[in-house]
Design a protein around this nucleic acid. Structure first.
Length: 568
RNA sequence: GACUCAGUAGCUCAGCAGGUAGAGCACAUCCCUUUUAAGGAUGGGGUCCUGGGUUCGAAUCCCAGCUGGGUCACCA
C-alpha cells in the first residue's frame, strides 16, 4: 500500500509510531505485561474507606481522551468494560523533562491504542471511580482510527451501525459496541450449559466427519467438493445424524456433538450457509423421554443466562419453565383450520389445501401436503414453547413408526416463537423398514423432489447389526441463541456471517493512465487539447483529471483565457 | 429470485426545482480546569459506490451494474 492511499489520520498515526521509536519507545513491545485487576472488579468492589486497589496494574484499549493542561483523563477498555484513568503531568514526569506527558501521552497516543497502567484507585470530584496513573506502558500502537461511539443520558451519538461494516469488520464492532460482545458471551454460555448437563448425564461428546461421501440425515442441498488423491466427490455434511447412530450401534449409550452443518441454500435473517446444530442420541429412550429432556435443557439454559425462565423476545415474553404442552400435528391442524386430516388420502388432502388457499404442486406427496398445511396455518401460532408431535410417516424417513398408528411417526418438533427450535425422534432401528423408507425417498426423488434423501448402504448395514431403541434430538444453536438473546437476525449471533466477497479498490484507472501518458509527452498543455487527445467522454475526463489533481499528479491553471494542465 | 430503500469526510448524517460539497464527532495547532457525548479558537481532510447517458454544466435527472439493509418467496 502506498502512502498516498492512506488517510490523513492514518498518516498521522504512522508518524506518531515513528516518533515513538525515535524516543526509544517500542510501540510493539514483547515482554509480558502483568495484570492484577480489571475494570469491572474495580468498579464493583472499590471502597474508598477500605483503601483497597491501591496498587493496581491493568491493560486495555484507550477509548476516549479528555486532555487538559497538565492533567488528562482517558477511558481504558478491557475485556470486562471501561474505567477512567487520570494522568497528571508532574507525577508522570517528576523531573524537568516533561516529554513523556506533553508529547508521548498527549500527542502520540490515540484512541484505539493499547496501554498498560499502574497506579491506585480513587474517586474524582465528579464521583467517578478512576485510576490515578503513576506509570503507563504502550503495548500496541493502533494505526487505524476507530469509529467512536459516545453516549450521554442513554442517548447514543455516532453509533457504528452500518450492518455491512459491522459484519465484515466484526473486530471493530466488538470494540465499539459492547452489547455485541454480550450476545457472544451468552452464546458460549448456552453451549457450556448444555455440555455440562450432558456430561452430568454421562453422555459422551464426539466428533464425526464433516466431509462425507453421502450427505445424509436431512433433506437439503449440499455443498460439494472434491478429494484429489482419492479422486472422488465429497460433500460437506448437512447433518451428522447417521454417523451418531452408527456410534450407538457401536455401543455408546449416549453421544452428542456440537456440529457445524452446511447447506447450499438461500441466506436470510434466519439462515446462514454454515450453522451449528447440537445433536444428541440416547439409547433405550423414546421421544417421550426426549421431550422431558429437551424441556430441561431449555429451562436450564434460560436460567443460566437470565436467572429466570422468562425471556424477552421481540414483543413477546417466552417462558421456558417446563413442562411444555404436547400437541399432535393432527390436533394442531384441527384447532387452527377446522379440518381433520386423520386417515385422509393424498387426493383428499389436496382438496383441503385448495379450500385453505394453499398452493400445491403434483410432486407433493401426502407428508409434504400435511407439512404445508401445518407450516401455513399452524406453525406461527405456537409462540410459547410447545411440542408438536406425531408427524406423518412420509416426511420422517428416519423415524420409528408410531406405536399406535402406522401412518404416523414418533417425532416431535419444539416450536418457540412460531419457529422450529428442535427436532427429535424415536429413531428408526428396523433395518428393513429403513430400507423401504429410503426407497420411498428415491421414488420421491424420481417424482421431482430434489431434496429427497440418498440411500446410505453402509448405514443400513450398521442397522442390520442392530441398534438399540434410541431417541435422538437436534437443536439449532444459532436459533436458540437468537431466542435467548433477543436477536432478530442470525448474523447477530454469528461472529463472521457469510458475506459476498469484498470488492478490491483499484489504483489508477486506464483513463487516468492515458491522461498521464499524454501529459508526459507535453506539459504544460491546453486543457482543451489534451482532453481532445485523450478521447474521453466529458464525464470520464472530468473524473480522471479531478483524480489526478487531487492526488497532486497534475494541476489545472488559468493562463490568460485558456485553461492549462501541467504535470507536477 | 421478486419488490423496496440506501450508498456523500475515519463515524453519524445534511445537501438533490442540476451550477464542481457542508455539520457534529474524530484528526492537527493553540489555550485551560479533577474532567466526562469536556469547553473555546483556528485549520486540514472528500474517486459525493461504479460505468454510461441527458446537459454548456450531474453528488443532484435517466439507464445499467456493484454492495448492503428490509419485506416476500424458496429453503428448515
Amino acid at each position: 500500500m502506498s502512502i498516498q492511499e492512506l488517510s490523513e489520520q492514518e498518516i498521522i498515526r504512522r508518524n506518531s509510531l515513528q516518533r515513538l521509536r525515535e524516543l526509544g519507545i517500542d510501540p510493539y513491545p514483547a515482554p509480558e505485561y502483568t495484570i492484577n485487576a480489571n475494570a469491572a472488579e474495580i468498579k464493583e468492589n472499590f471502597n474508598a474507606e477500605e483503601k483497597n486497589f491501591q496498587d493496581v496494574s491493568l491493560a486495555g484499549r484507550i477509548m476516549g481522551f479528555r486532555i487538559m493542561g497538565k492533567a488528562a483523563f482517558a477511558e481504558l477498555q478491557d475485556h470486562t468494560g471501561r474505567i477512567q484513568i487520570y494522568v497528571n503531568r508532574d507525577e508522570i514526569c517528576p523531573g524537568e523533562d516533561k516529554t513523556l506527558y506533553n508529547e508521548v501521552f498527549k500527542k502520540l497516543l490515540d484512541i484505539g491504542d493499547i496501554i498498560g497502567v499502574k497506579g491506585y484507585v480513587f474517586i474524582t470530584q465528579t464521583g467517578e471511580i478512576s485510576i490515578h496513573v503513576k506509570e503507563f506502558t504502550i503495548l500496541n500502537k493502533s494505526l487505524r482510527p476507530l469509529p467512536i461511539v459516545k453516549e450521554k443520558d442513554g442517548k447514543t451519538y455516532d453509533a457504528f451501525t452500518d450492518p455491512e461494516q459491522r459484519y465484515r469488520q466484526r473486530y471493530v464492532d466488538l470494540i465499539v459496541n459492547p452489547q455485541v460482545k454480550d450476545v457472544f458471551v451468552k452464546r458460549t454460555k448456552i453451549v457450556n450449559t448444555m455440555r455440562q448437563m450432558f456430561n452430568e448425564y454421562g453422555y459422551f461428546e464426539v466428533e464425526t466427519p464433516i466431509l462425507q461421501p453421502i450427505p445424509g440425515g436431512a433433506t437439503a442441498r449440499p455443498f460439494i467438493t472434491h478429494h484429489n488423491s482419492l479422486n472422488i466427490p465429497l460433500y460437506l455434511r448437512i447433518a451428522n445424524e447417521l454417523y451418531l447412530k452408527r456410534l450407538i450401534v457401536g455401543g455408546f449409550e449416549g453421544v452428542y456433538e456440537f456440529a457445524k452443518d452446511f447447506r447450499n441454500e438461500g441466506m436470510d435473517r434466519t439462515h446462514n450457509p454454515e450453522f451449528t446444530v447440537m445433536e444428541i442420541y440416547v439409547a433405550y429412550k423414546d421421544y417421550k423421554w426426549m421431550m422431558n429432556f429437551t424441556e430441561q435443557i431449555c429451562e436450564r439454559v434460560a436460567l443460566a443466562l437470565h436467572g429466570t425462565t422468562k425471556v424477552q423476545l421481540g414483543d413477546n415474553v417466552i417462558d421456558y419453565k417446563a413442562p411444555y404442552p404436547r400437541v399432535t400435528m393432527t390436533e394442531a391442524i384441527k384447532t387452527h383450520t377446522g379440518f381433520d386430516i386423520s386417515g385422509k388420502n393424498e387426493k383428499e388432502l389436496r382438496e383441503i389445501c385448495d379450500k385453505l388457499g394453499i398452493e400445491t404442486d403434483p410432486t407433493m406427496g401426502k407428508g409434504k401436503l400435511i407439512d404445508e398445511i401445518f407450516g401455513e396455518k399452524c406453525e406461527h401460532h405456537y409462540i410459547q414453547p410447545t411440542f408438536i408431535t406425531d408427524y406423518p410417516v412420509e416426511m420422517s424417513p428416519l423415524t420409528k413408526k408410531h406405536r399406535d398408528n402406522p401412518e404416523l411417526t414418533e417425532r416431535f418438533e419444539l416450536m418457540v416463537n412460531g419457529k422450529e427450535l428442535a427436532n427429535a425422534y424415536s429413531e428408526l432401528n428396523d433395518p428393513i423398514d429403513q430400507r423401504e423408507r429410503f426407497e420411498d425417498q428415491l421414488r420421491l426423488s424420481e417424482k421431482g423432489d430434489d431434496e429427497a434423501m440418498f440411500i446410505d448402504q453402509d448405514f443400513l448395514r450398521a442397522l442390520e447389526y442392530g441398534m438399540p431403541p434410541t431417541s435422538g434430538m437436534g437443536m439449532g444453536i444459532d436459533r436458540l441463541t437468537m431466542f435467548m438473546t433477543n436477536s432478530a437476525s442470525i448474523q447477530d449471533v454469528l461472529f463472521f456471517p457469510q458475506m459476498k466477497p469484498e470488492k478490491k479498490a483499484i489504483e489508477l484507472t486506464e483513463e487516468e493512465k492515458t491522461v498521464m501518458a499524454l501529459l508526459k509527452e507535453k506539459s504544460p498543455v491546453a486543457l482543451a487539447e489534451i482532453k481532445e487527445k485523450s478521447g474521453l467522454s466529458n464525464k470520464k475526463w472530468d473524473v480522471s483529471i479531478k483524480k489526478l489533481t487531487s492526488n497532486k499528479l497534475a494541476t489545472v491553471a488559468k493562463v490568460g483565457d485558456e485553461l492549462m494542465v501541467e504535470l507536477v
